[in-house]
């Protein structure tokens, strides 16, 4: 019986190794074949499913990144983070004392303060999207000061977006420098690098951008802002986690992975977790190294947990709003 191990030392980055980046080979068809059997080679049922779903909650970055966000909306999200699952359900499942809580609450820079306040005492970190989200097309100086402001307001995690043009033009030096600068400004806050994979065109570009971001010091690599037309997919995820494995083999640093957007049901979440377990191993099944960028996912997990607890299929309106 292996138990989850700690994530190891924080990634310090390595010098940009263009030879290594250039040698990346990705075969899309093969990737898709593997991705299509991830959900069919494994299955998690009964108590195992209960445990996995509870664990899934700890991976969720409860997120609100909308134009109509208000302090009230952010506070409601934080309240949900404090009580992710109904107490009666947890009790029936014998899981009251596990202390299930989401991985983080993720908001725009302007709402960091509100969220920090609302989550006080919970230990749930606040993550901020802070670099001209979602397009990244603001001057670097502006973006860096945005990061500084978020960190100052108490954000423990900073989700940055890359400038897609750097990846599309394969200007890896520029991407490397940009991520490195952001990482420096983050200080102790962890940095998640959003690749906006839906806009990178090919899986090879995703793989190379992943590798460059890690070399530049990313703590996490993340698929999407949630604003691209295509968000997290299993093939993209497979590419990114394999690059994480490659980087680990090269450097010994464990980098986290965060698929975001489009993961809205419990079953899909379990497939993603199985993928992490298969490709990276049990030690990656920790909020320190794996997150879901999602919010409606939690509602579906709650319903499945209630079903596990009562044996009846659950109603949506019996779960509190996310």
């Amino acid at each position: 019986m292996s138990s989850i191990r700690n994530p190891g030392p924080r990634n310090l980055g390595i010098p940009l190794d263009l030879k290594h980046v250039g040698a990346v080979q990705i075969n899309r068809s093969a990737l898709e074949r593997r991705a299509s059997t991830l959900g069919t080679r494994r299955s998690v049922k009964k108590d195992n499913q209960t445990a996995w779903l509870l664990k899934a909650i700890t991976f969720i970055d409860l997120t609100t990144l909308a134009g109509d966000d208000t302090d009230g909306r952010v506070r409601r999200l934080c309240t949900k983070a404090r009580h992710p699952v109904r107490a009666d359900v947890l009790e029936m499942l014998g899981a009251s004392d596990i202390g299930v809580k989401p991985g983080a609450v993720c908001v725009y820079n302007n709402f960091v303060g509100t969220a920090v306040q609302a989550l006080e005492g919970t230990g749930i970190p606040v993550a901020a999207v802070s670099t001209g989200f979602p397009a990244g097309h603001t001057p670097l100086g502006t973006r860096l000061s945005e990061i500084r402001a978020s960190v100052k307001a108490g954000a423990k995690e900073i989700d940055i977006v890359i400038e897609r043009h750097m990846a599309l033009r394969e200007d890896w030096r520029a991407l490397y420098n940009m991520v490195k600068r952001c990482r420096e400004v983050c200080g102790d806050a962890h940095i998640k690098v959003i690749l906006a994979t839906g806009e990178l065109g090919t899986l090879s570009t995703v793989a190379k951008a992943s590798m460059v971001s890690m070399m530049a010091g990313a703590d996490f690599i993340k698929t999407s802002t949630g604003k691209e037309s295509v968000n997290a997919t299993l093939p993209v995820s497979l590419v990114m986690v394999r690059m994480i494995r490659e980087y680990f083999e090269m450097t010994g640093y464990k980098i986290g992975y965060k698929p975001a957007g489009g993961i809205s049901d419990a079953k899909t979440a379990l497939v993603y977790m199985s993928m992490i377990k298969e490709e990276l191993g049990d030690e990656w099944l920790t909020p320190d190294l794996f997150r879901f960028g999602a919010s409606s996912l939690l509602g579906d997990i709650e319903r499945q947990l209630e079903h596990r607890a009562t044996g009846r299929y659950a109603a949506r309106h019996h779960q509190s709003l996310v």
């Binding site: 108590d47 996995w52 014998g94 199985s274």
Partner: peptide
Amino acid sequence: MSVKEIYKTMEYGSA
């Protein structure tokens, strides 16, 4: 194995 134990080990179990 209890839910709490599986929560730690993250085993698949059987299906």
